[in-house]
Computed example of a mutant assay.
Amino acid sequence: MSMYPSQMKAFKGAEPKTLGAVEIIIGTLTVTLSTIVYKLHYHIQREIIILILNGAQLLITGIVLVHAGRRPTKCLVGTSIVLQLLTAAFDIIGFGLMARHVPFRGESYYYRDTEFLVNGILGTLIGSLVLACIIGLVVALFGVYALSVSAIKEMTPIPNSTANPQYSAGGQTKSAVHAGN
Rank of each mutant, 00 (worst) to 15 (best):
S2N: 14
S2Y: 06
Y4M: 10
M8A: 04
K9T: 09
K9G: 08
A10D: 06
F11H: 07
G13K: 04
G13I: 01
E15Q: 14
L19C: 02
V22W: 08
E23P: 00
I24M: 15
I24P: 05
T28W: 02
L29G: 10
L33P: 03
S34L: 04
T35S: 15
T35F: 11
V37G: 05
V37C: 08
V37T: 09
Y38D: 03
Y38T: 09
Y38S: 13
L40Y: 03
L40R: 11
I44L: 11
Q45G: 12
Q45I: 05
I48A: 03
I49E: 07
L51W: 01
G55H: 05
Q57S: 12
Q57C: 12
T61P: 07
I63K: 12
H67R: 14
H67Y: 03
H67M: 15
H67W: 03
A68V: 02
A68T: 01
G69W: 04
R70D: 04
P72S: 08
C75I: 13
C75H: 05
V77N: 07
V77L: 07
G78C: 11
G78T: 10
T79K: 05
T79A: 14
I81W: 06
L83E: 04
Q84A: 12
Q84G: 08
L86S: 13
L86C: 14
T87H: 06
T87W: 10
A88G: 10
A88Q: 06
A89C: 04
D91V: 03
D91A: 13
I92F: 07
I93Y: 02
F95L: 15
G96W: 00
G96M: 15
L97S: 11
M98P: 00
M98F: 03
P103N: 07
P103H: 06
P103Q: 07
F104H: 07
R105V: 15
R105F: 03
R105I: 12
E107M: 10
S108I: 08
S108T: 14
Y111M: 15
Y111W: 10
Y111E: 15
Y111R: 10
R112I: 13
T114P: 02
E115P: 08
F116A: 11
F116N: 07
V118N: 02
V118R: 00
V118K: 00
G120A: 08
G120I: 11
G120Y: 01
L122R: 01
L122H: 04
L125E: 08
L125R: 04
G127C: 05
S128Q: 06
S128Y: 01
V130L: 11
V130N: 02
L131Y: 02
A132D: 06
C133A: 10
C133V: 05
C133D: 07
L137C: 08
V139W: 00
V139T: 10
L141N: 10
G143E: 01
G143F: 04
V144M: 07
V144D: 02
V144W: 00
Y145Q: 14
Y145S: 15
Y145F: 13
L147H: 06
S148N: 01
S150M: 08
A151L: 13
I152F: 00
M155R: 15
N160A: 14
S161N: 05
T162H: 05
A163Y: 04
A163C: 11
P165H: 01
Y167G: 13
A169H: 08
G170L: 08
G171P: 03
G171Q: 06
Q172E: 12
S175Q: 03
S175W: 02
H178E: 13
A179G: 04
G180Q: 13
G180L: 12
N181D: 13
N181S: 14
